[in-house]
Each structure stands twice: as structure tokens, then as C-alpha cells.
């Protein structure tokens, strides 16, 4: 994958979308009382942190941020040729009575979110789980939908959406690529 087919969001657009999502979270949950964010590794984490910063800015209160590693809950492990490296999940706040907002970069088939729901529920029982994603690219294979979406992008299965974030990749952008032919 070399040249992107299209630039879907630049840095400014990403940040504006995050600000809007933050407001939506506040509106929907009538404030940030009992709200916590849980970022799905890997890029869901910096997204959750940026959302948390905006929530704090808008409401004046700090919102806890957790990290979820869903490797152990993936349903496609047996299809991998080698075993992925696992990392720790970190959810230090209590879950009962909490509104947990899962945060991920791209919502595609929905399987990652399904694994995240299982992983989260094995840690504890939140009162409500909502989902915030930066990009929804369609092609759901499970009945999963996001509560908050940064941008809806219709794609084909032969395309890939890549989210780059300064915290991980050194710069902010969301780009669309074609899958190389041999990848199937």
C-alpha cells in the first residue's frame, strides 16, 4: 500500500469531529456524571484520551479513561498464521453504575466491538455501554451499531481505511487505500 486513494479527514477535521462527539456524549448522557471512556487498543486509546480531554474542558470534570486489549477475545485467532502479541488491559475504575463508552478508530465488520463487549463484561458489569468511533465504513457482519460517529464513509471491501494519529504515527489523518491484489 503506497499512495492513498483519497484523504478522508485531515487533522482539523478529525479534531472537529471529536469535539462534536464530545458534545453529543454530554447531551445524550445529560452531563458526564458516571461516564467513563474505554479505548480499544490500539488507536482507540489516543482517541479516548482526546475525547476525555474535551469532556473535561467542556464540563469541567475529569473523566476516567481505560484501555482494553481484545486479542484474547478475537474470534479469528485460528485463522492467523502466527499468534498475536497480547498487551494488558487497564480498567482501574469500577464498572457497576458506570456508563462506559467504548472508543475505536474504525467500525467495519463489528467483530472487534463484539470482542470488546466480551472482554469488558469479563472485567465487570457496566450499567450502560455505548460506542464511539471516528469512522464508520459500513459492511457490518454482526448486528452492531455506533452511538457516536465521526464520519460515515461508504467503502468497498477491496478498500482499507487507515487512521493515523499523532500520538502513535506522528501525524493526524484518515486515508483510504486499495488493498494490494495479492492480499486475498
Amino acid at each position: 500500500m503506497t499512495e492513498p486513494k483519497a484523504l478522508l479527514m485531515d487533522s482539523a477535521q478529525m479534531n472537529r469531529a471529536l469535539s462534536r462527539i464530545a458534545h453529543e456524549i454530554i447531551e445524550r448522557n445529560k452531563g458526564t456524571e458516571n461516564v467513563a471512556l474505554v479505548g480499544i487498543r490500539r488507536r482507540g486509546v489516543p482517541l479516548a484520551q482526546r475525547l476525555a480531554a474535551r469532556l473535561q474542558e467542556f464540563e469541567g470534570k475529569k473523566v476516567p479513561v481505560g484501555i482494553l486489549d481484545i486479542t484474547l477475545y478475537r474470534d479469528d485467532l485460528t485463522e492467523l498464521s502466527s499468534v498475536p502479541v497480547i498487551h494488558k488491559s487497564e480498567v482501574t475504575f469500577k464498572l457497576p453504575g458506570t456508563i462506559v463508552i467504548l472508543v475505536d478508530d474504525v467500525l467495519y465488520t463489528g467483530r472487534t466491538v463484539r470482542a470488546a463487549l466480551d472482554a469488558l463484561l469479563d472485567i465487570g458489569r457496566p450499567s450502560v455501554i455505548q460506542l464511539a468511533v471516528l469512522v464508520d465504513r459500513g459492511h457490518r457482519e454482526l448486528p452492531i451499531r455506533a452511538d457516536y460517529v465521526g464520519k460515515n464513509v461508504p467503502t468497498s471491501k477491496r478498500e482499507v481505511v487507515e487512521v493515523h494519529m499523532t500520538e502513535v504515527d506522528g501525524e493526524d489523518y484518515v486515508a483510504l487505500f486499495d488493498l494490494p491484489d495479492e492480499a486475498h
Binding site: 486489549d69 484474547l72 477475545y73 502479541v85 497480547i86 494488558k88 472482554a119
Partner: peptide, 23 residues
């Protein structure tokens, strides 16, 4: 190193309330 790092990560499963992952 890989084994020890993996073990470190998996350790919490045995100490949390739900001692199960579906892996």
C-alpha cells in the same frame, strides 16, 4: 522474553473476578 511478557499480561486473569477468557 516473549513468554515472560505474555505471562505478565495474562497474570491478571487469574486474579480478577471472572477468571476466563475465550481464547
Amino acid at each position: 522474553d516473549l513468554i515472560l511478557n505474555t505471562a505478565d499480561t495474562l497474570k491478571d486473569i487469574a486474579t480478577r473476578p471472572i477468571k476466563k477468557v475465550p481464547t
